[in-house]
Amino acid sequence: MKLPQLLDSLFPDGHAITVSGQTITGTATTARGAVAVLGTTEGAAISHDIALTLAEGILDTIAQYPGRPLIFLVDTSGQALSRQQELLCLNGSLGHLAQCVDLARRQGHPSISLVTEQAVSGGYLSFGLMADRSYACTDAQVRVMDLKAMARVTKIAYERLAALAADSAIIAPGADNYCRMGAIDAIWEPPLAVSLEAALAEIAASKGMQDRRMAAGLARGGRQLAAGVAAAVLAAS
């Protein structure tokens, strides 16, 4: 789905959204009131500039509209790959963005991320995976690395990785795998507005800021060790 169609499907009651380069900023109307909309499009590689623009949008929302929900539209191919970006500590700007999402949570702003096309590694870590709830559109790609590249880097035969991917959610790309592992809450089918309103209602009714992903991964069978290991650390003498 192209971005204009996606926005109309998500926000049929209206939206005022600007796309500058690959960065999305604006507001929209939902059945549950106004929301801030921030994100990226066309597989943006997250740079200092994009991270800081998104961070500024979050900080402005916290300052001006207490409690307003944040909707993150995620379409990122990862982090910007350049020496100049690394020279100025790109991890620091992505970390700053992540801290802004976390501050919003602590200040009572519900947050939802929706992977519209693709979500990769650092680009996804910096804001999409920081949201209270993460969702993905049908056909959205979520990955660290595609299996062919992974085969090259790990020097494990592609056929071997592909065979393993068939019955394990651990390595293979795919939003459904991230769902089984607890990081993505659901895959959204059109009409997207219905899913968005249900998600906003669900967050409003839920309590606490705990990270629920380990428990979800265990319950859905995709990530069976993490929850037990973390619990064992808490209980260790």
Partner: peptide, 26 residues
């Protein structure tokens, strides 16, 4: 960074570490 041999689990774990660091700092 993320261990490619368990890529999805590693990426999600890093995100959980990020949240846990900020929870401790809070």
């Amino acid at each position: 960074g993320v261990r490619l041999h368990e890529a999805n689990a590693g990426l999600i774990a890093v995100s959980e570490i990020m949240r846990a660091v900020l929870a401790a700092r809070a």
